[in-house]
C-alpha cells in the first residue's frame, strides 16, 4: 500500500465523475504530491492511467478493496 498526501472518495460517483475529481485534485496539488482515489467505476483505472500518460503525471498503481478500487497518482510536472 502506498502513502498519499490526499484521498478522494469518489465512491458512488458514476463515470466520468471519479476521473474528473482526480483531475481537479491534481490541478490543485503541489509537484510531487500523491493523490489516492477511491472509485467503484471499474473503468477509472484505465482512464486514469491513460490520462497520466497524456498529462505527464505518474500512475503509481491500483489495489482492490472491498467493492471498490484504490488508485495512486503522483503529480510529476
Amino acid at each position: 500500500m502506498l502513502t498519499s498526501n490526499r484521498t478522494i472518495d469518489a465512491r458512488g460517483s458514476q463515470c466520468p465523475g471519479p476521473l474528473s475529481e482526480l483531475i481537479r485534485a491534481m490541478k490543485e496539488a503541489e509537484l510531487g504530491e500523491v493523490i489516492e482515489l477511491w472509485t467503484e467505476e471499474p473503468r477509472t483505472k484505465t482512464d486514469a492511467r491513460e490520462w497520466c500518460e497524456k498529462a505527464g503525471h505518474e500512475f503509481l498503481g491500483v489495489e482492490s478493496a472491498e467493492g471498490y478500487e484504490r488508485i495512486w497518482v503522483k503529480k510529476a510536472r
Partner: peptide, 8 residues
C-alpha cells in the same frame, strides 16, 4: 472534451 472519449 475532458475525458478520453467523445461521450461519457
Amino acid at each position: 472534451t475532458p475525458i478520453n472519449r467523445l461521450f461519457p
